Simulated scan of single mutants.
Amino acid sequence: MKDHRTMKVYLSGEIHTDWRDRIIEGAKGLDLSFAAPVTDHAASDDCGVEILGAEPDKFWHDRKGAQVNAIRTRHGIETADIVVVRFGEKYKQWNAAFDAGYAAALGKSLIILHPEEHDHALKEVDAAALAVARTPEQVVGVLRYVLTGTLG
């Protein structure tokens, strides 16, 4: 009898587009569960000071938030079977690069999602990945194939 369990996918990276929703919608019917960082930008930025107290210096304000967010991010990456990291067009996502490196260091199966114009800048990140996709739908195709062994 085959051992079966739900595969866990962590969706890391840019928060300004609907790419996560497109993957989750496209993967309906597959035995996958999804986790992600907090995508409410204000909540993510201010969680540290809202929970642990105000900081007069912006550096410490940001650091406190980053550390609280890191608890969620580390857990999501560490418990994932597959990590998808999206690099968007508009912003430099240093945190996404960090997440990709962390996932690679843990030996996680890594799928990178970014537009072609980022190929050169992300060449080292792409080299650590097992797949580099251009669209959320390609990510769904990889997930479907990994789970079912079928195309389309």
Rank of each mutant, 00 (worst) to 15 (best):
T135K: 10
R72P: 08
H120T: 10
D57H: 10
A36P: 01
A104W: 11
I51T: 14
I24T: 01
A105Q: 14
T39R: 15
R74F: 13
N69F: 04
W19Y: 01
G152Q: 08
E14R: 09
P115Q: 12
A36Y: 09
D18F: 00
I77E: 00
R22P: 01
K123L: 14
A27V: 08
I112F: 01
S12I: 02
S44Y: 05
A105T: 15
R144Y: 01
V49K: 10
T73D: 11
L113I: 01
I77T: 01
Y10A: 12
V142R: 03
S44V: 05
A70S: 07
L106V: 08
G88Q: 05
E14L: 09
V140W: 00
A42K: 07
W60T: 11
L147R: 12
Y10N: 02
A131G: 12
G53S: 12
R63P: 07
G13M: 10
W94M: 10
D31Y: 00
G76F: 02
A70C: 01
V84L: 04
V125M: 04
L151I: 10
G149R: 09
A54N: 14
V84A: 02
Y10G: 06
P56S: 14
H120V: 09
A36V: 08
G29Q: 10
H61T: 07
S109P: 15
G149N: 12
F34T: 10
M1F: 11
V132N: 09
L11K: 00
P115N: 14
Q138L: 07
D99T: 05
E137F: 00
A128H: 04
I71M: 04
A66V: 01
V38L: 13
Y102F: 13
V125R: 03
L147S: 13
G65L: 03
K8V: 08
V83Y: 02
D3W: 15
E137A: 07
P56I: 10
P115T: 04
V142T: 13
V142I: 15
S44K: 08
W19I: 02
E78T: 09
